[in-house]
């Protein structure tokens, strides 16, 4: 375990260098935006809407005393979605989708000797392959999460008006109630840390494969498992640090 962490640090030392050619790096970054971000939009949208809807329905269902106003539904949905569901759950989903993709892409390049080919040409392969991916995730995931927050709250509203448990007006009042911008800051900090975990841990598992196609599969599974666990652990740590 400690050896693995050491190798991870060494790899990151290689990754965080100035790219050989700025224009090539920019082109790669655009490709990564497309494949790591835009292609995840669909699944994020679906999950966020349903997540928000479920939170709203459950909250409404649990309010059975007239002492608690129904505007609480909007408030609770917003708080849950912004604080936890969007940053953490969506990051876990991205760990599965983006993480396995990064690990298998880099792993395949390793087993087909493409990484060796880069190195014999004198290219810093770790920097060339991994840096654009990490950068893309760090820049893009906050946007994805913000979109997810809006869609989650929208999903809650949709659920309220279709089930007629809460009126549209009450819900919106609730959503706007007692809003602290610090919660957004907290959520985005989490998102950025999780984005770094997903991209760097997955790249690490892909980069150090030896063997063949089976190892590529094993590595992408490991990438997802490790980055998910790390996300959960860091979620706790960051919550302790930032919210208490």
């Amino acid at each position: 375990m400690i050896r693995m962490f050491g190798r991870y640090l060494i790899l990151m030392g290689e990754v965080f260098r100035k790219p050989e050619k700025g224009n090539i790096f920019r082109k790669q970054l655009i490709v990564e935006f497309q494949s790591l971000g835009v292609e995840s939009l669909g699944i994020i949208a679906i999950i966020s809407v349903f997540m928000g809807a479920v939170v709203a329905i459950q909250t409404a269902y649990n309010i059975d005393t007239p002492l608690i106003p129904l505007t609480m539904v909007g408030f609770t949905t917003r708080q849950s979605v912004v604080l936890e569901f969007s940053p953490t759950i969506i990051s876990l989903i991205l760990a599965g989708k983006v993480g396995s993709r990064i690990a298998s892409e880099i792993g395949t390049m390793r087993v087909t000797e493409q990484i060796d080919a880069l190195q014999t040409m004198g290219v810093n392969a770790a920097n060339f392959l991994i840096f654009p991916k990490i950068t893309a995730c760090l820049l893009l995931n906050p946007f994805l999460i913000v979109i997810s927050m809006f869609l989650g709250i929208f999903g809650g509203w949709l659920a309220c008006i279709t089930t007629q448990m809460v009126s549209s007006q009450d819900y919106i009042i609730g959503v706007r109630y007692w809003f602290e911008s610090y919660t957004i800051f907290y959520a985005l900090i989490k998102t950025v840390v999780f984005a770094y975990i997903i991209s760097s841990v997955s790249a690490f598992f892909g980069y150090y494969i030896s063997g063949g196609a089976i190892e590529v599969g094993t590595a992408s599974t490991k990438a997802v498992v490790y980055s998910s666990i790390l996300i959960i652990i860091f979620n706790l740590i960051l919550t302790q640090l930032l919210l208490t």
Partner: peptide, 30 residues
């Protein structure tokens, strides 16, 4: 490294690049 060329057993072409981009790669890089 720039003075040596290597042909790998499986070819090791970059599979997301066209033939042209593959051959051009070292030139663009260096």
């Amino acid at each position: 490294c720039k003075e040596l060329g290597m042909l790998f057993q499986g070819g090791a072409l970059f599979d997301y690049m066209t033939v042209e981009k593959n051959v051009m790669f070292p030139l663009s890089m260096f």
